[in-house]
Design a protein around this nucleic acid. Structure first.
Lengths: 145, 145
DNA sequence: GTGATTGCAAAGCGTTTGCACCGTA
DNA sequence: TACGGTGCAAACGCTTTGCAATCAC
């Protein structure tokens, strides 16, 4: 997350969106303002509520479609609740980095003291009391290459 | 992921489940067999299909309920597709570790060359061609403590 | 025997889609 | 003016739930 002021970030995002050929509509601006200014991970429904609270007239569908654009441009990233699950695989998330092949679904769980130590240190540095980890990387496995 | 044989892992899991007071029903055994033997991240529906293919008579609801138990006992962990999203937050997932407070939703994006280097090295060691990263840790933030 | 577990089917809920209208460029 | 974007509402699909029947212990 960069350290620019909210307004500068908003302008940067709008500029990037226009550069990519998107039209700067009021709905889009509203979503950008909400997400760019927030220091919180927001659900689409929360974005909708905040945008509407800020006077904007906007629909659910547009929120989803706009968030998609922001992700596409890498201005925004998605956060995954540890409790939310799409797939299940043997292993204990608290002590492993999971390497997953998005093509075939194969997964390898990797134990790495160094990695865990590093992650713990980062959390401590920022004053967070660590609860859960979600360390997963996605790559094409040897067989699918 | 431990290196034991499938059968031993199945027995270990069943033992742990019984220890926790769960009854070892045919449906539960079927789910355990499928997930413990697989080296793939499976969706609940895939688990269902595989269990049914293996002769078991089992319903969707039971698959969900059984997977919950396995996660609770930390025998299984959930995998999150990079494309699936619950919340959105400013930042670029490819270069950051996200620290999130599950209580208030606050998030801090951390850049760490060492962490990224370590992750890249691990992927390479295992023969994976890295595509996406999902490095997120959850901890109570200073203000919520 | 008895209380946990299951199957079924309905309900739930966030997300996606189709389409006519609107507004940016 | 043209066509990308929007709102609405219906459709969708995975997940959850209620309840009676079942079965592990």
């Amino acid at each position: 997350m960069d350290e620019s002021t909210p307004q500068i970030r908003i302008d940067t995002w709008l500029h990037a969106l226009r550069e990519s050929g998107y039209r700067l509509t009021p709905s889009l601006r509203a979503v950008v303002a909400v997400v760019a200014e927030s220091h919180h991970a927001l659900t689409p429904m929360q974005v909708l509520a905040l945008a509407q609270a800020g006077d904007a007239e906007i629909s659910r569908a547009t929120v989803y479609r706009t968030l998609e654009k922001l992700v596409e441009l890498r201005l925004v990233q998605t956060v995954h609740d540890a409790s939310d699950c799409l797939r299940y695989v043997a292993g204990d998330a608290d002590h492993q980095l999971l390497v997953i092949c998005p093509q075939c679904g194969r997964s390898d769980a990797v134990q790495s003291e160094r990695l865990m130590g590093l992650v713990n240190a980062i959390a401590a540095d920022h004053g967070y009391r660590l609860k859960d980890r979600l360390l997963q990387i996605f790559g094409i496995c040897p067989e699918c290459q």
